[in-house]
Design a protein around this nucleic acid. Structure first.
Lengths: 136, 136
DNA sequence: TAACTGTACTAGTAAACACAGTACACAAGG
DNA sequence: CCTTGTGTACTGTGTTTACTAGTACAGTTA
C-alpha cells in the first residue's frame, strides 16, 4: 500500500543532463536539503515512473545508483526509504569528483564575462540550503 | 608555413567530457588566461589533430565553434588567430548558461560532504586566473 | 606549381540513453 | 492460498551524440 507523496521534481527537456541524471540529482537535493527526512518512503519504481512519464527502468536505475551512494535503502517488496547519513565514497573518490566537477564548471563559465564574485555568489546561493545539513 | 607552438593541452580519457569539448575548453582557458595573446596564431587544423592524435574533423569543429563564440578569427588559407576580446552572446544567453552550469555543478557536488567554504575556495582557485583578464 | 592553410561534404562506427516487454522474488492483506 | 504491490534482472530496439575516415575544393604563400 504505502501512501507516498508525489516527489516535487522538475524535469526539463532543455536541460543537457539525461533524464535519469536529472531525477537522481533532484532526489539527492531533496534529501540533502531535508525535504525528505530520514526514514521517509519514496514513491515506488512504477509510481514515480508514471508520475514523471518515464520508463520504469529509468527509475530503477536511479534508485539503484542512489542506493549504491548510500542515499536510500531498498527493502525488497516494501519500497525505498531515505537512509541515515553516511559516507560511501572514499576520500580519493570524493576529491576526484570535486576536481572534475570544478573542471567542467570552469569550462562552462569561462568566457561568459561574469566576475568571480558574482559567480561565487550565485554558486553559494544554490548550494547553501544543501550543504552542511546532513552531516550536522 | 607558420611556426606555431604546440598547444599545451591535456586530454584525458577519464574526463567525462567528449574530446572535442575538452579541446575547446582548453583553448578557451589558454586565451582567457592570456597564455595565448590576441593575434597569436593557433596550430593548423591538421597540425593540432596530429599533435593530439585526433581526427582533423574534430579540430575543425572546435575551431568553428570557437570562431562562432568570438574567441578566434579564421582566415582562409592562413590559419586561426586569437581574436580581440568581444562578447558574442546575448545577456539572456549568458545568464541561461551560467544558471545551467551552476545547476549541473551543484548536482555533482551535493553529497560529497564538502563544506560550502571549501567548495567556493576551490572554485575560486580554478577560476581566478581566467576571469577579469580579457575584459580588463 | 607546390605545399600549406581552412572548409564542406558523405559514410561509418561506437557508445550512451531511454523505451518496451518480460520474468521472477519478496511482503502484506484478503 | 491468492492477489496486489513492491524491487530486481534480464533482453531487446531505436535514437542521438561523438568521433573517425575519406574525399574534395578553395584561398595563400613561396
Amino acid at each position: 500500500m504505502s501512501r507516498t507523496v508525489p516527489l516535487l521534481l522538475q524535469l526539463s527537456a532543455a536541460d543537457p543532463r539525461p533524464i535519469g541524471k536529472q531525477i537522481a540529482d533532484g532526489v539527492r537535493r531533496l534529501i540533502a536539503s531535508g525535504d525528505l527526512p530520514v526514514g521517509a518512503q519514496l514513491p515506488s519504481v512504477r509510481g514515480l515512473a508514471q508520475q514523471l512519464t518515464v520508463n520504469p527502468n529509468t527509475i530503477a536505475k536511479v534508485y539503484g545508483e542512489l542506493g549504491a551512494e548510500g542515499w536510500i535503502d531498498s527493502r525488497q517488496g516494501l519500497g525505498q526509504f531515505v537512509a541515515a547519513p553516511r559516507q560511501r565514497l572514499s576520500e580519493a573518490e570524493r576529491s576526484r569528483r570535486l576536481a572534475q566537477a570544478i573542471e567542467v564548471f570552469s569550462g562552462e563559465v569561462i568566457g561568459l564575462d561574469y566576475s568571480l564574485e558574482e559567480v561565487l555568489a550565485r554558486v553559494g546561493e544554490r548550494l547553501v540550503p544543501c550543504l552542511n545539513k546532513r552531516s550536522a
